[in-house]
């Protein structure tokens, strides 16, 4: 892992990996969503709205997983002072915020026909909205810190503090009476029939690969900016 902290070594494997992740993720996602829309059966209670799950669950997972990765990168930035870890955290923030917003929006679209309401201030929905605001706060703090030319230490600490919200999101449906249902996939098995679950598995993996490709692209862009600035300084000297 420490070997990856070297930007040159990171780029030597990130460059070939980016198209593989991107195209592989897009292809898997396309196939799974096609299956989810046209091949898998409807649910006996929800009817066709069950298909919204194939985009809702992966985006929610990436919104939360994105912050977990951001927090891990922040920790490594703080402990080992790896610049690349700070760059990774910064590259995750925008895609993570987009995924969280999509999870909230698709959840509302599912909630209207199923629950009978777009939004309710229950534990799960509120803690997920908080996650979106945490991403916004991280982006603002990080931009302000970079403007002053610092190491972005405060945003790294903010990334760690925000991770406390992740177990709250996960356990909200177990701790409290909520409108949102409890998890269907637990260590005890799946409450989702296999005919409905396979497109979900495919779209979750597909979205995750595509998310990884997006993060790599954003990291490469940030490294490119840094190289550009360094070469400009050298040329001026």
């Amino acid at each position: 892992m420490h070997a990856l902290a070297n930007p040159a070594r990171f780029l030597s494997f990130a460059r070939p990996l980016t198209p593989w992740l991107g195209w592989g993720g897009a292809a898997l996602l396309g196939a799974s969503l096609f299956g989810g829309l046209f091949l898998s059966p409807r649910d006996y209670l929800q009817g066709e709205t069950v298909r919204i799950m194939y985009v809702h669950v992966p985006t929610a997972w990436l919104g939360m997983g994105g912050w977990a990765a951001l927090a891990a990168a922040s920790a490594s930035h703080l402990v080992w002072r790896h610049t690349l870890a700070g760059i990774a955290a910064r590259a995750i923030a925008v895609p993570g915020a987009v995924m969280t917003a999509l999870a909230l929006a698709t959840g509302a679209i599912w909630g209207r026909p199923t629950w009978g309401t777009w939004w309710e201030w229950d534990g799960r929905l509120t803690s997920m909205l908080l996650l979106f605001f945490l991403y916004c706060g991280y982006l603002a703090l990080n931009a302000a810190e970079r403007e002053r030319g610092g190491e972005a230490k405060l945003s790294a600490i903010f990334g760690l503090v925000g991770a406390v919200n992740l177990p709250v999101i996960h356990f909200s449906v177990i701790w409290w009476n909520t409108l949102h249902q409890p998890p269907s996939l637990t260590t005890e098995g799946s409450a989702i029939d296999a005919s409905i679950a396979w497109p979900l598995l495919g779209s979750t993996i597909g979205f995750t690969l595509l998310f990884a490709a997006i993060v790599l692209m954003r990291m490469r862009a940030i490294l490119g900016q840094a190289r550009f600035a360094a070469r400009l300084r050298r040329a001026a000297a």
């Binding site: 969503l33 895609p95 987009v98 917003a101 999509l102 679209i109």
Partner: peptide, 20 residues
């Protein structure tokens, strides 16, 4: 229910595409 399903897919794929 189909308008809800289509709205969710268009929104998700549109935003993911723009982001990519």
């Amino acid at each position: 229910h189909w308008p809800f399903v289509i709205a969710a897919y268009v929104l998700t794929l549109g935003a993911t595409g723009v982001l990519t």
